Simulated assay, not measured.
Amino acid sequence: MKRYFNTPFFIRLFNWEYWNSTIVYAPIYPYYAWLALKARSFMFLTAANPLIKNGGFIMESKKDVYDLIPPQYYPATLYFEAGTPLEIVSRGIEEKSLTFPLIAKPDIGERGLAVKKVNNVAELEQYITHMPFAFLVQEFVSYENEVGIFYCKPPGAARGFISGIVNKEPVTIVGDGLSTLEQLVRVNPRYLLQLDHIAAQQGEQMRSVLPVGESLVLVPYGNHSRGSKFTDHTHRATDKLNESIDRICSQIPQFYYGRLDVRFLSWEALERGENISIIEVNGSGSEPTHIYDPEHSLLFAWKEIIRHWDLLYSISKENNRRGVKYIKLSALRSDINAFKQIDASLSARVW
């Protein structure tokens, strides 16, 4: 019976964190509609971060967002248009003094889609060949710890604050000296959902056996959709950490609402704002991803989403009062369609 229920269908059925977002959000969409009615715009969220395209709701360029961040806080990054020859990419890497492994990812995208750790020139060439859109090549940050820190700052306020922290545990296998990688993946419900992707990445190594106690990171990205376990660490939002994050975010012009994905050496260093690297900054389309802690109920998730929608509404409303225009849904239609095409195209490929 246990083996019967350890299948992707039942894992998803009995764990809401894997449900389709439309199903999760459907019961609380009326609340968003109420906020939109008060704002007199369904797309009020586009005013949250005036210097980020669409407020960071959709189709924002990662490169453009990085350009707003002081360079000491994010990995060295190169931007390339689709179809850029390998020799030009390699030249840029050399000029930037970057070394393998590197991270390659699309300039526009979400949920960790098409993000890949490339270990050598051959893997980089393969990525470039398969990538039909503009992409980034980025320094690989080796810090083992990764969190998502949700930050809010009312326009005009002296300080911002942390509204949520999620700790990200990447897909990591620990050997028992007997089981193959595939067997170890299959017995872990969270990892089983990623089996096809992991198998495509690991190839023949899936048949290998790790020695007892030896660990192997199979997916080195802190993305829930790629198998990472998310746990709620909001209790770590100390005054000292709030001060450090506010000091950093205050250097990002007109950034009022969103989530920072951060890799860091230790919690003590993070509190000091040292030995950290901001992997990405997400704007008004951000989720408070600490809701995906397996210990949290769906009711908790709804409460947290609504709390953040309230914050988003008040920030956007104040920016609008200060002259930032809400983008009309009709004007966004082409961006929404373009994003759907990008998402579909990237999802259809094996990365």
Rank of each mutant, 00 (worst) to 15 (best):
G109L: 10
L113E: 10
I108C: 11
R111P: 05
I103H: 02
L102M: 10
A122H: 15
K116Q: 15
A134W: 02
A134D: 15
L136V: 03
P101S: 06
V121E: 13
D107L: 05
E125S: 14
Q138V: 01
K105H: 09
I128Y: 02
E123H: 09
F135P: 00
N120T: 10
P101F: 12
K117M: 13
L124S: 00
Q138T: 06
V115C: 11
V121G: 04
A114S: 15
P132T: 07
L136Q: 01
N120K: 14
L102W: 00
Q138P: 01
A134L: 02
A122C: 10
M131F: 01
E123A: 13
K117S: 01
A104H: 02
M131Q: 15
H130W: 11
E139I: 05
L113Y: 03
Y127D: 03
V118L: 10
V115T: 15
E123G: 11
E125I: 03
P132A: 07
N119Y: 13
F135H: 01
G109C: 11
D107T: 10
E139G: 03
V118T: 06
M131Y: 01
F135C: 02
A134S: 15
E125F: 04
K116C: 11
L102N: 01
L136P: 00
V137R: 01
I108N: 03
E125C: 02
I103L: 10
P106D: 09
L136T: 03
Q126V: 05
D107R: 07
K116A: 14
V115F: 12
I128T: 00
D107H: 13
F133A: 06
M131L: 08
E123V: 05
Q126L: 13
R111H: 08
L102E: 04
L136A: 04
F133S: 06
I108K: 15
A122V: 15
V115K: 04
R111D: 02
D107Y: 06
I103Q: 00
L124Q: 03
N119E: 12
A114E: 12
P101V: 10
E123N: 09
K105M: 09
